[in-house]
Structure formats: structure tokens, C-alpha cells
């Protein structure tokens, strides 16, 4: 066995590299900055990498001490492979909590889908959304089919995590809205699992319309991964998946703390 390994290693070491250099320019390197930031093929460069790690560490401290943020069910996050996180949406804190629940080494592969009409409407907003949150501009108004297609391509890269809020907007009164069927279209018949999450306390800590968050307690419950490989990618299938996931998130909401 060992000899076999050694032979394989020798072979690998003596196979020459391809004869000429291979350049792989940044996809869209010659686009204006705003367009480059709102591309689904965006990749982190060194500066972005550093800024994102630093801001994530600061954010984790902030959530821990200001909001007493806790995560339950962290073991439910798949260790390998792509998956989708879905959660209820009550506040801007939601995405920050989801990002903080991920291990730091997967930070650059975790893409929250942000509303293109809000987070990518101006250059400063796009810069912040792309650099600190690694957000992807999801078109929830006109062409969501194209955005779903692009999300599909992001998930095809191994190890990508897509964070989605299937309600499509922040719930104004703390009550969870209906899950839209886009998540179903994305997950139907696919290999990757969908992990439902419920974040408690975000609507109270940072309600819609308030400038800065209050020091409310936050709790993120991560549920069991769900697989939809067998669901047909039809309209009904998509609706069923959205319904299932909404039910799963609602169940997490009713779980008593510490149970």
C-alpha cells in the first residue's frame, strides 16, 4: 500500500507542468468597479480578504457582547460541500448573525443574497455589501429567474454556501411572511442540502426603520439539513419545498430555549 502511494507520488512529481503559463484573468477585470462588485463571479482579492476577516472578527465580538448572541445546533451545518442556509428575515442583523455562525475559513465562500435594488443601488453601498458581507445582488423584482440561475452556478462551485431569506423582505411586525417559491426552484432535484435556521430577537433589537440596533438578546437555531433531490423541478414541487422549509423554520421558532 505504502509502496503504491510512493509510486503515485513519484509519478505526480515527475509529470511536467503544461508547457506555457496559463493566465486566468479576473472575470470582468475591465468592467467598471460597480459592475465588477455586482457580478456573481466576483472573487476576493487580498485587500478584500483582509478587510473581510478583520470585520468578521470585530462583528463576532460585537454580537457576542452587545447582543449576547448564541448559536444552537451548529453541528447541523454540513462540514463539506455546498449548501443553502434559509432563515426568517426581520432585520439587517439577520445576515450578520448567519455570517457569524459560519466558521471563519468558509467566510469567503459564504454568499448572502442581498436585494439588488437596495444593497447594490450605489457605489458605496455595493462596496460595503461586497467587501464586508460578500453579498450577491439578487434581483427580487424584475428578473429573479436570471438571479436564480446565477445562484445555481455559485452553488456548483464545491464548498459554496448561499444564505437566502425566502420571504424576500424584512417582516415588519416580527411575524414571519410567506416563503416565496424561488428557494424551491433552486433546490428541487439538486444534490445540496438546505439548512433551515430561525433567528430570534433580531426584529426587537434592530427593527426596520431604526438607525442603530438596541442591545437585545439574539439566538440563532440551526435545524437539520433537508434534502430535495427527489422533488421534481416543477412549479408545484417548488411550492412544496418553499412550504416545507417555511414549516421547518416555524418549527424552530416554536422550540423552547434549551430544549
Amino acid at each position: 500500500m505504502n509502496r503504491d502511494k510512493a509510486r503515485k507520488r513519484d509519478q505526480k512529481m515527475t509529470t511536467p507542468s503544461p508547457k506555457s503559463w496559463k493566465y486566468r484573468p479576473y472575470p470582468g477585470y475591465d468592467l467598471p468597479l460597480q459592475e465588477r462588485l455586482s457580478s456573481f463571479q466576483r472573487r476576493p482579492e487580498f485587500l478584500v480578504f483582509v478587510l473581510r476577516i478583520l470585520s468578521a472578527i470585530v462583528l463576532r465580538f460585537w454580537l457576542r457582547f452587545y447582543h449576547r448572541f448564541r448559536v444552537e445546533g451548529r453541528e447541523n451545518l454540513p462540514r463539506k460541500g455546498s449548501f443553502i442556509l434559509v432563515a426568517n428575515h426581520a432585520s439587517h442583523l439577520d445576515v450578520l448573525c448567519l455570517l457569524s455562525a459560519m466558521p471563519l475559513r468558509r467566510l469567503h465562500q459564504t454568499y448572502p443574497a442581498g436585494a439588488a435594488d437596495y444593497f447594490f443601488s450605489s457605489l458605496p453601498r455595493s462596496l460595503a455589501a461586497a467587501t464586508f458581507a460578500n453579498a450577491l445582488p439578487f434581483d427580487r423584482k424584475k428578473d429573479s429567474a436570471a438571479s436564480l440561475e446565477a445562484c445555481q452556478q455559485v452553488l456548483a462551485k464545491p464548498g459554496s454556501v448561499l444564505a437566502l431569506f425566502p420571504e424576500g423582505t424584512r417582516a415588519p411586525d416580527g411575524k414571519m411572511g410567506r416563503f416565496r417559491s424561488g428557494i424551491g426552484r433552486l433546490a428541487a432535484g439538486q444534490e445540496f442540502p438546505v439548512v433551515p435556521c430561525y433567528l430570534e430577537g433580531a426584529g426587537r433589537a434592530w427593527p426596520k426603520g431604526r438607525r442603530l440596533p438596541l442591545p437585545g438578546r439574539l439566538l440563532l437555531r440551526i435545524g437539520q439539513p433537508q434534502h430535495f433531490k427527489g422533488t421534481p423541478p416543477s412549479r408545484q414541487g417548488a411550492r412544496d419545498i418553499a412550504g416545507d422549509l417555511q414549516g421547518a423554520v416555524a418549527d424552530l421558532a416554536e422550540t423552547r430555549m434549551g430544549k
Binding site: 496559463k22 484573468p25 479576473y26 477585470y29 480578504f49
Partner: peptide
């Protein structure tokens, strides 16, 4: 770095 693809190597 973007044009040559070197940016991939942090």
C-alpha cells in the same frame, strides 16, 4: 494581479 490571475494567490 487581476489581469494575470495572480490575485487568486492571497
Amino acid at each position: 494581479a487581476r489581469a494575470t490571475g495572480l490575485y487568486r494567490d492571497w
